[in-house]
Amino acid sequence: MQHAHGLVIREYQAGDEVAILETFNRVFREVDPGFVPRSLAYWRWQYLANPGGWRIWLALTEEGRVVSQYSGVGQRMVLEGEPAHFSQAVDSMSDPAYRKGLKKPGVFVLTGEPYAANYGGRLDTIMWGLPVPNAWRIGKKYLGYDLIRTQSRLAADSRTWEGAAAPGIDVAETRALPDDLDDLFARASKPYLAIAVRDRAHYQWRFFDHPEQRYELAVARRGGQLVGLCFFRVGEFGGERAGLVCDWLTDPAEPGAAAALCAWLQERTLAAGVERTVALLPGTAADCLPLQRLGMRVEPTQYFLVGRPYKKGYDMRWLYHHWYYTLGDTDLV
């Protein structure tokens, strides 16, 4: 525990979530008229139930009021074949009333620095996020943020989809996670030197246990073997309501898996009453070109991916080339 500017700076302790949400909901309501207050159930799911763990540092008044938070969602990773952790910085905030009272670098940095000092290296190899411009400027100046990628998205509609045959591959919707999920992950993760673990614990938490959203899962099989899967829901992304590809995992040796799952996505999007299907993958992902050939188009987004490395050898350019992620790795869906 540290003290600075009359504030207590410390890691999250059980029960802090009530005070965190009081400030969080007040701060974001003031800047976003359409803001929906964060529920305690959502908070507990996001942080406490996450198999990748939570990362939270707080600045509190002596009375226990949260005036700043720097927080992250842990991710279990496979990094060059070895287990590792990344954390995605989300929900960071500072109370405007206290922001004004402190000189630079300000209250946001008061919690960002111990976050890095306590989790960086010891637990996490990389901290990353999709910051808003103001957080980016502060993070760049005071917290070591660097740009990884200006983020594009893939989008398709009924005009652009190009039906491609996928003989021998069956796609089925299911609410049960496949038993052979780990086998698919082992094959699908091969092209990437950095990828978040996609196992039963992760998918159960990320999609099926989500307290507010319902996701659909489609699995593609050839001869009974799992060759691809896709999580989907309808939602807002980049100012439009679209069918969102929330996770995408295919066997690189099975090009028909992408075609079969795209056919399902096209049907599912239309059935949901929205026009476009949208996915977010790194441009370096092995499926980016096949998805374009199946009718998806590359479009700009407002998002840019930034990170801070905590270990040598994993700078932002390395991540640019080697890291696979999807919308489901972020808190955008």
Binding site: G283, T284, C288, L289, R293, V298, E299, P300
Partner: peptide, 19 residues
Amino acid sequence: PDWSPWFARFQESQWRVWP
């Protein structure tokens, strides 16, 4: 630049975005 209308139009004409 990806914000240009031409970026989208070239894709409509079978140009693809390579990493």
